[in-house]
């Protein structure tokens, strides 16, 4: 099975990439290529919805972490949701993803994103000294 990546805007600050198939040595260059638009535009958050991802290898892990690094280097973050058990196991073995960036369901993720956006709106910006 090949890899599929479908990117959409959740809102003005968040892009969601729904990933399906396999992320391995063969498909990771395609993933890097397709995800790059979401990493370099003005969004603050990129969500990887891994609902259809059935397999990940070390090459795929590297791609996910390159994406995380790209988001963090512009002051944003990469969040994961719907990680399937067999993929979750690989993430856990390499202890490579902070748990606070992984969400069990879209509902849980939505609550977090809404909370963060509200917090952002409520906090006074550019407070003068």
């Amino acid at each position: 099975m090949a890899l599929s990546v479908t990117i959409s805007d959740r809102d003005s600050t968040t892009k969601v990439a729904v990933v399906g198939g396999k992320l391995d040595t063969t498909t990771s260059p395609q993933f890097d290529d397709e995800i790059s638009a979401a990493l370099t535009s003005g969004n603050v958050v990129t969500v990887l919805d891994l609902v259809g991802l059935t397999y990940i290898s070390s090459a795929g892990l590297r791609s996910v972490f390159k994406a995380r690094k790209a988001m963090e280097s512009k002051g944003g973050s990469l969040l994961l949701v719907n990680v399937q058990p067999q993929v979750q196991k690989v993430f856990e073995i390499v202890k490579a993803m902070p748990v606070q960036q992984v969400f069990r369901s879209v509902d849980e993720l939505d609550q977090y994103l809404d909370y963060m956006q509200k917090k952002e709106q409520d906090s006074p910006k550019g407070t003068e000294a």
Binding site: S57, S58, R62, F65, K66, K69, I93, V94, K95, A96
Partner: peptide
């Protein structure tokens, strides 16, 4: 604990 990109190539695979 190291950043994944700083880990030596191949090391992660054989660890898995």
């Amino acid at each position: 604990d190291a950043d994944i990109e700083d880990r030596p190539i191949g090391g992660l695979g054989i660890y898995l």
